Amino acid sequence: MFERDVNRAGSARRARAACGALLLLATGSAAPAQAPDPRILPAQPAYARNAACAPLRIAMPPGTHRLPGDALISPKPAEIPIGQGDTAICFAYATADMISQRVGRAVSPLDVAGKFYFADPARLEGLPDPALRAHLRAHPNHAADIAWSRNAADINPVGNPGLQPYFDKLEGGEEDAAALLYNLDGLCEERDLPSHEGYAHFTPTYAALRFGAPLRAPNQCLRRVGATVGKLRSRGADAFNDAWLARVETLCRRIPLPVPLLPVSTRVAANQLDFMAMLEAGRPPAPRDITRLLARVDYALDHGRAPTIGYSWYILQDRDPKDPDLAADHSSAVIGRRRTAGGCQYLVQDNTGEYCARMRPDIAGRCDNGRVWLREDELRRTLYSVIYLR
């Protein structure tokens, strides 16, 4: 969204829907997450690769997630990433990881998604933080970018023949827009609004809201959903979404953000499908452009930030011939780096819940508990975006 390297106006964009499966392998356990770094990184730094591929591991806040019904998880939540289940909102899970690392608390991905789809971007202008105000002045098109991102979302037709934009039927989103909108109203922790296994904790809630939405529609209050784009609104869906957001507010014990969330985004393609179209047209991104993305990853890691990357899930797992998704557009946080005899590798934290045994054999050997070491040459094949928080 911010500092785009492509002209999105002409891009035929698909929202992210196929969001891969659990990536995996780390060397040892990470140190406990530290207090939030009060520094605000420069808006336009000099990016460069870490030539030595110096090893490091970004500390993440301990996980608090649980299974529906309060069943215990094995391994422990602190040892595995939160999983998105059957949702198609990997952007919210990756963004939540990025924000959680920045603020030192495990943030709820469902809350991240709710703000992305429905929060009023005009309210950002009223926030007093000077760094955020300077960031908004430097990106005067942020409201239009957010609207564009919302209009790129898809609506899941399964159990939804009328294609109503119910919250739990929305798919796809943008990490930078989601991070910026999360400056509003304070953070909601995962322990308050559980998101492990996607919507599974709230299946009865959604069923009740869907049944009752037509009854509430004539008398609904639109203050929670009225500022989003027309694509995400209808009479029945407004009632459903407004009631869901009200439910979120009863569950979330919101905490003020300790630092402003200032996203920096760089990309060589609009999404994975656009990246593939560039390859098919004989216009692949220049190697120097991918190097430039990796320099952003190195910069973020070297300055204590966990960036998110846009790439293809098919790096990790073969495509099922019956899968209609040709791109498998995916988003994950990067939380480590190491050098091996084969070159530089990056530790990617996934959020989908897939097992290592289902990965490609060479990938499976680098997997453990929701994290995978990817070689630089593997990332270069499909990497198209990098987002980090200043």
Rank of each mutant, 00 (worst) to 15 (best):
E3F: 11
E3I: 05
V6E: 12
V6P: 00
N7Y: 07
A12Q: 12
A21K: 04
L25I: 11
A35S: 05
D37P: 05
R49E: 09
R49P: 03
N50D: 15
A54Y: 00
M60D: 03
P61Q: 04
H65E: 07
R66T: 08
P68W: 00
D70W: 01
E79F: 15
I82K: 12
I82P: 02
G83F: 02
T87K: 00
T87V: 04
A88T: 02
I89E: 07
A96K: 10
A96H: 10
Q101C: 13
R102A: 14
S108K: 09
A113V: 07
Y117P: 15
Y117H: 15
F118S: 14
A122V: 14
R123V: 08
L124W: 14
L124G: 07
E125P: 03
L127R: 06
P130E: 02
A131N: 09
L132A: 06
A134L: 03
H135S: 08
A138N: 06
D145S: 13
D145H: 08
A147K: 09
W148H: 15
N151M: 10
N151C: 11
A152K: 03
I155C: 04
N156V: 05
P157F: 01
P161H: 00
G162R: 15
G162Q: 15
L163R: 04
Q164E: 14
Y166A: 05
F167Q: 04
G173V: 02
E175S: 14
A177S: 15
A177D: 15
L180R: 07
Y182R: 05
L187V: 08
C188A: 13
R191Q: 15
R191M: 11
D192H: 08
L193S: 03
L193W: 06
P194A: 12
S195M: 13
H196F: 11
Y199M: 12
H201A: 06
Y206F: 15
F211T: 07
P218K: 04
Q220G: 09
C221Y: 10
A227D: 08
V229M: 07
G230F: 11
G230M: 03
L232F: 01
S234Q: 04
S234D: 10
A239N: 04
A239Q: 01
D242P: 01
V248I: 14
L251E: 09
R253A: 13
P256T: 06
V264C: 08
T266G: 01
R267T: 12
A270Q: 12
Q272V: 13
Q272M: 14
L273M: 12
P287W: 02
R292P: 03
L293G: 09
L294A: 03
A295H: 07
A295E: 08
R296V: 05
L301E: 08
L301H: 04
A306T: 10
Y311S: 00
S312V: 02
Q317I: 11
D320C: 00
S331M: 09
S331P: 04
V334L: 12
I335K: 01
G336K: 10
A341T: 08
G342R: 14
C344E: 02
T352V: 10
E354K: 03
Y355S: 01
R358W: 12
P361N: 05
D362R: 11
A364Q: 09
G365H: 03
C367K: 02
G370C: 05
G370Q: 06
E376H: 06
E376K: 06
L379P: 00
L379T: 01
L389F: 05
